[in-house]
Simulated scan of single mutants.
Amino acid sequence: MLNEDGTIAREGALTYVPEVFAPVVDAARARIGEVFGPTRLHSAYLYGSIPRGTATPGVSDLDLLIVLREEPTEADRAAAAALEAELDARFPQIDGVGALLAGAGTVLSELERYDLGFFVACLCTPLLGEDLAARLPAYRPTSLLARETNGDLELFLARWRQRLAGAPAGRERARLARAVGRHLVRTGFTLVLPLRGDWTSDLDEMAEAFAVHYPRWAAPMRTAVAVGRRPADADAAVLDMLVHDLGPWLAAEYRAVHGVKAPRP
């Protein structure tokens, strides 16, 4: 979705949160403030299907970004992990909680301008504190944005292969499958982002936008959508195809079209 001037519009809002998830969001707001406190916490955000209004009770997870005044410490990460477990256990409406941590300085840095900065400005919904979007630029669907958001797929492929080699089972395997499916779909979409000239976070729309330009890989990309939505149903052969076939081709094509994302420390 674009603004009238052709820049990418912010996709979520607290007014879009379905009523069934309102207690979850209220509890997250309260507990984030209590856990991190005003001296550590700069701001907090929702992202994903809940603030977009498309979440499914009992299936969707709660996605949070917690921005601290300083860079996160190991103690902060442990506190975030405990918060994830607490909220997940309290609310049957959600299936899992993911809380990302970042320092405000990192969000506003030049290095993260077209990755984490874009994420906050366009894909995150303010929940607590100062909205850093006011200090970030407007964004357009350009090759630069594509490169800096998803131009590091090869790094993820290496990690996924290591995790698959460990023969994950149960919930761990489902979480890996969900991450693989959704990441590949989003990477496929941003590969064609400048050609589409618009932004969406709907997985089906992303896959179909990709299929227009890469019909040969349309079926594997639609499989990635299915895995991202129903990770518990993904068998070993499907995961192997995504990580060893679609993934490497997509990484190579991405590098040829947009280049490689600027390295992070």
Rank of each mutant, 00 (worst) to 15 (best):
D63K: 13
F36R: 03
E71V: 01
L83E: 05
A78Q: 14
A44L: 05
A75Y: 08
T56W: 09
A78Y: 10
L65Y: 10
R40Y: 02
R52K: 14
E84Q: 15
E34L: 13
A79C: 12
A75C: 07
P38S: 15
E70R: 08
S43H: 03
E34K: 14
H42V: 00
R69T: 03
L41R: 04
A81T: 13
D61K: 05
A78R: 15
A79G: 09
V67I: 06
G48P: 07
D61R: 06
A81Y: 11
T73E: 00
V35E: 06
A55V: 04
A81Q: 15
V59C: 10
S60M: 09
E71Q: 03
P72A: 01
L46S: 01
E70W: 03
A55N: 04
L41P: 02
Y47L: 10
P38N: 11
V67W: 00
A82V: 13
I50C: 06
I66C: 11
R69C: 05
D61M: 08
R40G: 05
E70A: 09
A79L: 14
G58T: 02
H42W: 06
T54D: 09
V59R: 14
G53F: 01
A85I: 09
V35Y: 08
R40C: 05
A85R: 14
L41A: 03
G48C: 11
D63E: 15
T73P: 00
L62V: 15
E86M: 12
L68V: 03
T39W: 09
I66E: 02
A80P: 04
I50R: 02
E86V: 10
A79Y: 08
